[in-house]
Amino acid sequence: MKVLVTGGSGFIASHCLKTLLARNHTVVTTVRSAEKGEKILAAYPESSKGQLSYVVVPDIAQEHAFDQAIISEPPFDAILHTASPFHFNFQDPKELLDPAINGTKGILCAIKEKAPSVKRVVITSSFAAIVNPDGHPDVYSEDSWNTVTYEEGIEDRGKTYRASKALAERAAWSFMEEEKPGFSLATICPPYVFGPPIHVPESQKALNTSNAYFAMLMHGGWKEKLPPTGTWLWVDVRDIALAHVRAMEVPEAAGKRFFTTAGHFDMKEVAEIAQKRFPEYADKLPTELTSDKPSALYGCDNSRSKEILGLEYLPLESSVVDTIKFLQSHQI
């Protein structure tokens, strides 16, 4: 299949590229600049000539941003839309909200109008679109939705990221219902995403949000006390990449959300794995490791991802060890 991946330099997207190439798909990815595009091509020397290319989309929040990117010869069969900001360093909440919502609506409109060959679109959503911190259910599943509004996302910075993901995914499903395009949609909803990056970050500051925790541990940032776990669910990035690709390939994935999580964890477990597998970090951890996981914790149902996408989730130890080894090897 010929596939467009948006935001190819991102943590999840870069693994999607690797998985797609390994499964012999032809891939085009969007990047914000030609410089980023060339770095991506250099990161996948195993791809055959012509199997991987890029197209520049400077600002995904702009109207008609993807209009040219989705036109291709031969035409695209599927599109993985992963491009959305994920950081907490914004000045204005709209910096997160608008690119996520407008980018999602914009690419779906463009596909319907200009790329009739596309049969499947897969969008990266998040557990943030599922979780309801004001009142957890007994078990989270694909039927669970975060009810945050745009106004709440503007007024409460603690809700801004969750609003960006929930409202973007809702916009996608509303588009499908109202516009009835010629393609089907699947969405992927991961919680914390751990695992080694594909691209070597220029510095510790350039690490994606979740992997910054590992760098903190390695540099003594956990010495006084462990950081709060926050969301007690996790998944490895390599499983998430496979989930995207399988959601594109499998006919039964059409019209479905996928809650993709390997299960519960806490930072105490991460610290214990680091302590056991990397004794050199023992003195960078508290003498006594304590868990912040509540005794009564919500459950999670990931059965749909196993049954339809065939996922077999990596264990936490593999993810932690591989990530720390990556950071060590690149002296981050």
Score class of each variant (00 low, 15 high):
Ser72Ile: 06
His87Gly: 11
Ile70Thr: 10
Ser72Asn: 15
Asp98Val: 12
Lys112Val: 10
Pro133Lys: 02
Glu95Ile: 01
Ile123Leu: 14
Pro85Glu: 05
Lys112Asn: 14
Gly135Glu: 12
Ser125Cys: 11
His87Met: 10
Ile79Arg: 02
Thr124Glu: 05
Asn89Thr: 12
Cys109Lys: 08
Ala78Lys: 12
Leu108Thr: 07
Val122His: 03
Pro85Gly: 10
Pro75Met: 05
Asp67Leu: 13
Val118Phe: 06
Phe66Ile: 10
Gln62Glu: 13
Cys109Val: 05
Ser126Trp: 00
Pro85Phe: 06
Phe86Ile: 13
Asp92Phe: 03
Val118Lys: 09
Val131Ser: 01
Asp134Ala: 13
Ile71Met: 15
Pro116Thr: 06
Lys119Pro: 14
Ser117Tyr: 11
Val55Glu: 08
Pro133Phe: 00
Thr104Val: 09
Glu63Cys: 00
Ala100Lys: 05
Phe127Lys: 00
Glu63Ser: 02
Val131Gln: 03
Thr124Ser: 10
Gly106Tyr: 02
Ala115Phe: 06
Leu97Gly: 01
Ile60Val: 13
Pro58Asp: 05
Gly103Pro: 09
His87Lys: 06
Ser126Cys: 07
Asp134Tyr: 06
Pro74Tyr: 04
Lys119Tyr: 13
Ile101Arg: 08
Glu113Lys: 13
His81Phe: 04
Glu95Thr: 09
Ile107Glu: 01
Ala100Arg: 04
Ala65His: 01
Ile70Lys: 07
Ile60Ser: 02
Ile123Asp: 04
Val118Glu: 11
Ala61Lys: 09
Asp138Gly: 15
Ser117Phe: 13
Pro99Ala: 04
Gln68Asn: 15
Lys112Tyr: 10
Val56Glu: 12
